[in-house]
Design a protein around this nucleic acid. Structure first.
Length: 154
DNA sequence: GCCAACGTTGGC
DNA sequence: GCCAACGTTGGC
């Protein structure tokens, strides 16, 4: 299976790329959207590459790279009643929600802001730049991924 | 803090 | 199964 490319959003005041660098690996818990879950469950493969995106901050944008290091498995925070991600409908027998593990790869030397992404002709059609796009896990084409890497060099 | 966009829930 | 009401996301 060839490498696939993704963009994953995190609010830096909840979990930032600095947190991921310090920990090396994290489980991507708390996804409570079926489409995003299905991407993780049905399509993500080991070593898929991830653009790490900081949302709900100023400025929002892509701050670095990560890789998928464990295939989807039940998000056990869903049945932990003390977790902010608790879902009373989920249980170990019926997990509902899934997560993958993600490894730190690199920081970009500086953030590639959402504004830059929107202004970049080569990234036309990239989901993250679309108005009203709230999906927290998005597929990225190889061409767009490669172009983001190029932008990160400059 | 506002609010547009979107997803989910639940009454009917 | 429609759709209004509600909750959430996330840019601004």
């Amino acid at each position: 299976m060839s490498t696939q490319y993704w963009l994953m959003k995190s609010e830096p005041n909840v979990y930032s790329i600095d947190d991921l660098k310090r920990e090396g690996r994290t489980h991507w818990e708390g996804v409570r959207n079926y489409q995003a879950r299905n991407f993780m469950r049905d399509q993500m493969n080991l070593n898929d590459r991830v653009l790490f995106y900081h949302s709900n901050c100023n400025p929002p944008g892509i701050v670095g790279l990560a890789t998928v290091s464990k295939l989807a498995y039940p998000d056990f925070f869903a049945w932990d009643s003390s977790s902010p991600y608790f879902d009373p409908k989920a249980s170990p027998e019926k997990p509902i929600w899934m997560m993958v593990d993600v490894d730190y790869e690199a920081h970009f030397s500086k953030i590639i802001s959402l504004e830059q992404l929107k202004n970049e002709a080569a990234l036309a059609g990239m989901l993250v730049a679309k108005k009203g796009m709230r999906l927290s896990i998005q597929p990225v084409t190889q061409a767009h991924f490669d172009h983001v890497l190029e932008m990160a060099k400059h």
